[in-house]
Amino acid sequence: MNYLFHILVMINIYIILALSLNLLVGYTGLLSLCHAALYGIGAYITTLLLIHTGLGFLPSLLMAMVGTALISLIVSIPSTRLYGDYFVLATLGFQIIIFAVLYNWISVTRGPYGIPGIPRPAIFGLIFNSVPAYFLFSGILAGLCAWLLYLIKTSPFGRALKTIREDETAAAAFGKNIPRLKNTAFAISAGFAAVSGALFAGYMQYIDPTSFTVMESVLILSILIIGGTGNLKGPVIGAVVMLLLPEILRFLGMPDSIAANMRQIIYGLVLIILLRYKQEGLAGVYRFQ
């Protein structure tokens, strides 16, 4: 039973990651491959605040959101000037650079040794210690994030982002300040990724850089593309499907040793097939043309 709740906690964490990346990919049309790095920065800032200062979980979370959003501007301001593959490559570059910092800056992050002993969140005296309790906690946060992102996406700001996705030149000719909009979207998506980071840290009670690699960024992006972008349903369905699939495989009796690889193979095939025949993914609305 605890295992079921464990999966649900992870689903909540990935829902926030997918919905926040959706703001960039599905609404602004920016394919970013550095989301895992931002997720990681959020996790590390939260962790360091929780452990080294007396701050509680929620204040640490909020500061991590702000910190990650600000750091993301270092990535977005130069990168959003670039187009097409070059933008993707630049975000990939930042993902790799940020990972290297998390891995090598041992005095602060303890590098590959990781940071253990992260306390479970305590809100107004309530400690969300058990896994089912954490599911509740993460579910509330995921719901809140989803709601806030929904407000943002259906606002005139969200609409302006969509015009950039559709035709950047026309958007500019109709008064949209392209860099400001892109960078703001980037910072917002980074801020929400930090929430996932904080949730992850509080749940695992241990973090190290290997959870925030390029492949993790690829996974989050795959969730989006398979689930579908441009609306609320797609990313949620994507997160659920991608996280349940390994469990289904295990249930079908596939040995663990090849399960991980088989799962990836399925992701890869589904990706290729969807991109060819159903670009809006399982439940999304936006097609990449």
């Binding site: 005139p156 609409r159 302006a160 969509k162 559709e166 035709d167 026309a170 958007a171 949209k176 609305v285």
Partner: peptide, 13 residues
């Protein structure tokens, strides 16, 4: 025009 947006959204934007 902004293809994947509705006529209303095109104008409102």
């Amino acid at each position: 025009i902004f293809g994947q947006m509705t006529a209303e959204e095109n104008v409102m934007s």
